[in-house]
Amino acid sequence: MKLKLNYLIPYIVLFIIILVIGFLQHNVVNLEWLGIKTDSILPLAFATVGQTLVLLTGGIDLSIGGIICITNSLEAIKMTNNPINIIMFTIGMLLLGLILGAINGLIIVKIRLQPFIATLITWSIYGGIALWILPTDRGNVPKSFISALLARFGGIPVSLIIILILIGWWVYLQRIPFGKYILALGSNQKAAYLSGVNVDRIKIMVYAMSGFFAACAGVYRTAQVASGSPTAGNGFILTTVAAAVIGGTSLAGGEGSIIGSIIGACILKLLGDLLVFSGVSSYWVSLFQGLSLIIIIAIVSVSNLIKSRRKIRI
């Protein structure tokens, strides 16, 4: 397969951002910095991975906001400082995410609601449950839980290992039928259905996975912030979509990759950092972030345009 320029753009952009950060701040870009960054990126990366799977099938998942809120809130207030309790509780949270996500899938498949509407509804419900569990930001997070998730193995952060695992999982996904079915569903659901693909089951599985990854994000955020917030997840909803799009995922479905999405998440996070470094007032960060996003997405679309022009000429 030929390596196409537009697939490379997110990587080039990320590389340039890191270069500029290194240039602006000497001796900052090192292993320790990498650890801090991957720690801060991981929740978004998790949520983006889930969102990407859904986007690839041609859907969208707004409810990840609510799922992050619920898992973050529960994890922050209900855990005790007992290793077995911590492990069991965390696994419980991940399963909860899986179930809440599967509910999305069931609503979309059985009631035939648009994914946007279905997950808008469940976002509101899940968010409401989170507020009921934890009306204000607080938490009592066990120290051992925090240190386990933010640990370093010989300088290598757990978060980096997890990101590498996610990348490996995507490579695996492309080698099994399930991965192909996801892409097929997003490109042409009718053709996939007529090829004997169990469209409904794949959809439910994909939304369940998205819920699972949102729960991962919620759990990891608990360790990162050492607190719980019933509204923490809401900022993730559109950011995950933006990260996926920057990483080359098509909102129409059928095109994109989890690796690209993780790169997209890195770009979003580091771009914010860079703007703060370069002295942009924090009131202006959002504006500049938006402007930079337009530029990045424009570059990607222009190269797509050139590609399609070339195709027409043939």
């Binding site: 192909k180 097929a184 490109s187 042409n188 053709a191 090829s195 095109e255």
Partner: peptide
């Protein structure tokens, strides 16, 4: 209904 245009010949045949 038949083919997935954005996929390769190989991917379509073995779907």
């Amino acid at each position: 209904e038949g083919l997935i245009m954005s996929m390769t010949i190989r991917e379509n045949i073995t779907m």
